[in-house]
């Protein structure tokens, strides 16, 4: 069972605020999808290797050569909030 508590935890991990109504709706949706996904349980894959890359590519790199950077103005052009050449965010509390 995928409970509302699970949804709240996953929403928090995903940094998405949900209200009560959304929590109820998503727990129903996710429960339905996950029970469909459960059909994979029918398969024994203990001897199967996972495929995370579909092409057999390897050893792709570049040389240590400098390319031009953006200017400070370009980097900050679309910033939501800025201050003295830096991106500004609510205070990180430690």
């Amino acid at each position: 069972m995928f409970t509302e508590k699970d949804v709240k935890y996953i929403a928090s991990l995903s940094r998405i605020h949900l209200n009560e109504e959304q929590t109820a709706q998503f727990s129903k949706d996710l429960e339905k999808i996950l029970s469909y996904v459960k059909k994979l349980e029918q398969l024994d894959v203990s001897d199967v290797k996972p495929t995370s890359h579909v092409l057999p590519l390897k050893n792709v790199y570049r040389n240590d050569e400098i390319k031009p950077s953006l200017t400070q103005e370009q980097a900050l052009k679309f910033s939501v909030e800025q201050h003295n050449g830096s991106f500004k965010v609510p205070k990180v509390i430690e």
């Binding site: 965010v89 609510p90 205070k91």
Partner: peptide
């Protein structure tokens, strides 16, 4: 961390 403005500034 900038206490004056209660904000943090990010330099990448």
């Amino acid at each position: 961390h900038d206490n004056a403005s209660n904000a943090s500034l990010v330099d990448y």
